[in-house]
Amino acid sequence: MAAACPVALIKIDENLVRLQAFFVVIAVAAFLWSDSFWLLALLVYDFAVRVLGAPKGSPFFLTSRAVVKRLPVSAKPVDAGPKKFAAKIGLVFVITALLLAVGGYVEAATWLMGVMALFALLEAACGFCVGCKLYALCLPLFSRQ
C-alpha cells in the first residue's frame, strides 16, 4: 500500500508511538482483568488529550518519552497525520467502551477493548498501525479532486 499523504506536516518518533501503544495494551489488559471503569476513564483522558493536541497532558506520552530518552535507540520519524487519525479511532473505541460499561453492557465493552488491545499490540510489537491503514484507505474519500 502506498504511503499516506501527510496531513499535519509534522513528524513524530515512531518509537514513542509504539511505546504508548504498549502502555495502552497494559491498561486494556488491566481493564479486561478487573472490569474497572476507572481504567477506561484513564484511556479516554489519555486519548482525548493527545487527539486535542496536548500530548504533555497524556500520562502515556510522558511515560513513553521518559523511557525512550533512556533507551539506546535513535529517533525514527514518521508522519503524524495517520497516527493522529489512529488516535481518534482509539478515542472513539474507549468512549464507546466506557459508555457500554457504565450502561451495564460490560461484556460488549470487554469485546470492544479486546479488539483495541489487538490493534495496540500490533502497533507496539510489529509497528503495524491498523488506524494508519484505514487512514490511507479513507484519505481519497476526503481529498479534493
Rank of each mutant, 00 (worst) to 15 (best):
L121V: 04
C5W: 11
F22N: 05
V49H: 03
G90Y: 07
R144T: 13
A48N: 02
L122R: 02
L32A: 09
V102K: 15
K133T: 10
E14G: 13
T96A: 15
L71V: 03
F119Y: 10
V51P: 00
C5Q: 15
V44C: 06
L39G: 04
F60G: 08
S143P: 00
F93A: 14
A109S: 12
F61C: 06
F22Q: 05
A8G: 10
V106Y: 02
Q20N: 13
D35Y: 15
A86N: 07
C126R: 06
A86D: 03
V17P: 02
C132Q: 00
I89K: 15
V68E: 02
A21G: 06
F37L: 14
V92K: 12
A21L: 02
S74L: 11
C132G: 04
L52T: 13
F23S: 11
V102F: 09
L98C: 07
P55L: 10
I89P: 01
P6W: 13
Q145Y: 13
T63R: 06
P59F: 15
A97F: 00
V25W: 01
G127F: 00
F37H: 14
V28I: 11
F142E: 02
M113F: 04
I89S: 12
M116Q: 15
A125N: 03
A4H: 06
P140E: 03
P55G: 15
N15F: 02
L118H: 11
K69E: 07
E107Y: 05
A80N: 11
L43E: 08
L39W: 01
P82N: 14
L98N: 08
V49L: 03
K83F: 06
P6L: 14
E14P: 01
